[in-house]
Design a protein around this nucleic acid. Structure first.
Lengths: 182, 182
DNA sequence: CCTGGACTGAAACAGTCGTTTCAGTAACCG
DNA sequence: CGGTTACTGAAACGACTGTTTCAGTCCAGG
């Protein structure tokens, strides 16, 4: 990974955040970031390689979420604050797009993206549960539910932009489950 | 809407369920359903017109959900049964794809799709709430939350196919909120 | 019969796509 | 200095895209 590669990847990433990955094509991208299709292919091997690099780059922006909280609902609140922040919306759009695409196209650079992020996040949430709860069936259900609420709320927020309404719904949930254990 | 139009739309719809809308193109589609690009354009005006017709056709498959239950959680359970059914998975993939696409492309046949379905579903859920609750802030939060759980669970299910785990999470939620009112 | 509308086939149009070919520049290293 | 490596520009390649042009077939209605 050379310096020039990083530089162009960063520029391409900003472009992808604005324009999406679905109909990304090399010539308009290259023109927008002051490069050329020739160079992009030279540095990333192929368009698929570039897209893979972009997806990996996007993952790096999610990594701040990986610190370990020791309470599931507390972690969820923190994650929701991050998801609801307006400056992350382009990233979440990109995420949603990649997720959807990986569901219909088993091949290509999107392959396995949806499955991988679900596993990532469930693992992250599991790490926030006390070990005694973590391995129970109810513990699994609880973190699956938290993930569903966060993901579903994110979809709503991306479509409507109605942050107060969606945040109210999320907070209603988290304040409700925090002190209930079957 | 002639008979031939219906016939080809139905065939194209089945094709789209299997192959997605993202990289749908006329020639492969026409070949698969025994038609020709010429005919598809003649009957639907343009490719965008065809895609619009396909999205509308997909909505028709959602309409069975619109009967009116008089309890929000009861409605949610019924909706989840429908979402979790294996035979609806291609439709849900198509839905997710269209939703994601409409987030990044303000123009084209997908325009407004995400926003429209959120409004549709929130309206449907509101109709299941008692009028006294419906117009309160808490009522809005409650149906927003139900929608988020269903959508998030659906995303999980599409990615992992782990129906028992996700259904357990959904049922955990619904049995929890049904008799709680702030 | 014949006119008009519904439908269809074959081919071409202009454009975009990812990728390749061939060429060249610039910088660093021995 | 020679040579290797990193990078770049211009142009072309074949494949594909949505769409159009021109032609034709079929069939019901007057």
């Amino acid at each position: 990974m050379t310096a020039r590669q990083d530089e162009l990847l960063e520029a391409a990433y900003r472009y992808a955040l604005d324009n999406g990955l679905a109909d990304l094509s090399l010539r308009p991208l290259a023109a927008a970031i002051g490069s050329s299709p020739r160079v992009l292919l030279f540095l990333f091997g192929s368009k698929d390689g570039l897209v893979r690099a972009l997806l990996e780059r996007a993952r790096a922006d999610e990594r701040p979420l990986l610190d370990d909280t020791k309470d599931l609902d507390q972690a969820a609140v923190r994650i929701w604050e991050w998801l609801a922040a307006a400056e992350h919306r382009p990233l979440l759009r990109l995420w949603t797009e990649s997720y959807a695409r990986s569901l219909t196209e088993p091949d290509g650079p999107w392959a396995g993206f949806a499955r991988a992020t679900v596993d990532d996040w469930l693992g992250l949430l599991a790490a926030c549960q006390p070990p005694a709860e973590r391995n129970t069936a109810d513990g699994t259900a609880r973190r699956t539910l938290v993930l569903a609420v966060l993901r579903g709320a994110m979809l709503d927020l991306l479509a409507t932009g109605d942050e107060p309404r969606v945040t109210a719904a999320v907070r209603r949930q988290l304040s409700a489950t925090s002190h209930r254990h079957h």
